[in-house]
């Protein structure tokens, strides 16, 4: 039996209601990068709605360099055992065998992520072949719709991971919002060319034009490091936030994690955000995206 989810779900993709629906349950929440079972427990204790299991947070991937791959299955199993909330894990773009391994390990969501080194510079994973849901990164509407066509059940705007600089996250959500607003204002007979220009299927483009939003949940990622960053993304219309290096590269991870969770729920209340921002200690050091040479910008991976 299949049913159409509340203004989500679409006949033209492989995504099922249970898979797009899990992302709907995460809305208004914070998903945190963790590299050990101990960190996963701290994240759950702080009120994370899910954890992302990986070997190194993006800031360390940047520092270390080299090829970055899926984590050791043992680490992922340890994290699954440590928490009761959903566990996500990253596969390289196009690496369908890493995805098969993660599905076998029974992770709750696979992130086909530009933070790892791409395995295929042309094709993404055919996500419709999997039972486990996928979240994919996007910097614009066309990219988001191409990922949804391939079967992604959730989108995460990319930002620039591992920097603590929220400007790219802002750029990507503004771009996606603006492109959706533009579709909404178009006449019905202009949507064919809009689909051509977005390089996305007409049916999905038409659906976005009618509903005024993506057909799946969209979180924001890449550079969120403070409660104020998270609240700003929520005020921009994000369904929730991913925080990567921002928590465990900061001075007091447990306090910062709980503060970001609270700021995400009370994102429109400056009194709460001011309160939780007080006395958090040092934020992650951070890198200005404008200082990063182009080959080191992760958001440009994915096509």
């Amino acid at each position: 039996m299949t049913s159409t989810a509340y203004n989500y779900g679409t006949p033209s993709t492989g995504a099922t209601t249970v898979n797009t629906g899990l992302a709907q349950m995460l809305k208004g929440g914070v998903i945190m990068d963790v590299v050990t079972p101990e960190q996963a427990t701290i994240a759950e204790e702080a009120g994370a709605v899910a954890v992302m299991a990986l070997e190194r947070v993006p800031a360390d991937i940047r520092a270390t360099g080299g090829v970055s791959r899926m984590s050791d299955p043992d680490l992922i199993k340890g994290i699954i055992d440590a928490v009761s909330i959903p566990v996500m894990a990253k596969a390289r773009i196009g690496h369908f065998v890493e995805a098969q391994i993660l599905e076998h390990l029974k992770v709750d969501y696979i992130d086909e992520s530009e933070v790892l080194s791409p395995a295929d510079y042309v094709h993404h994973i055919d996500k419709s072949k999997f039972q486990v849901p996928f979240v994919c990164g996007a910097t614009n509407l066309g990219e988001a719709l191409r990922r949804i066509t391939e079967g992604a059940s959730m989108i995460r705007s990319k930002g620039e991971a591992g920097t603590g600089d929220v400007s790219e996250a802002m750029k990507h959500i503004r771009t996606i919002n603006a492109e959706i607003a533009q579709l909404r204002s178009m006449a019905e007979n202009e949507l064919y060319v809009a689909a051509k220009e977005l390089q996305a299927p007409y049916d999905l483009v038409r659906q976005v034009a009618h509903e005024g939003r993506l057909p799946v949940v969209m979180f924001v990622a890449g550079g969120v490091a403070t409660p104020a960053d998270a609240a700003m993304m929520m005020q921009m219309g994000a369904d929730g936030v991913f925080v990567g290096s921002g928590i465990f590269k900061a001075g007091n991870p447990a306090a910062r994690a709980a503060a970001i969770v609270k700021a995400t729920t009370y994102y429109d209340d400056p009194e709460v955000i001011a309160d939780v921002s007080t006395g958090l200690g040092e934020a992650m050091v951070g890198l200005n995206v404008s200082d990063l040479p182009a080959p080191h910008r992760l958001a440009e991976r994915g096509w």
């Binding site: 709907q24 349950m25 995460l26 809305k27 208004g28 929440g29 759950e44 204790e45 702080a46 009120g47 994370a48 709605v49 899910a50 009761s84 909330i85 959903p86 709980a258 969770v261 609270k262 729920t265």
Partner: peptide
Amino acid sequence: PGGESTAMARLAAP
């Protein structure tokens, strides 16, 4: 609603 009961319980506590 549906969501994560652990997250909701923690947000409700304060």
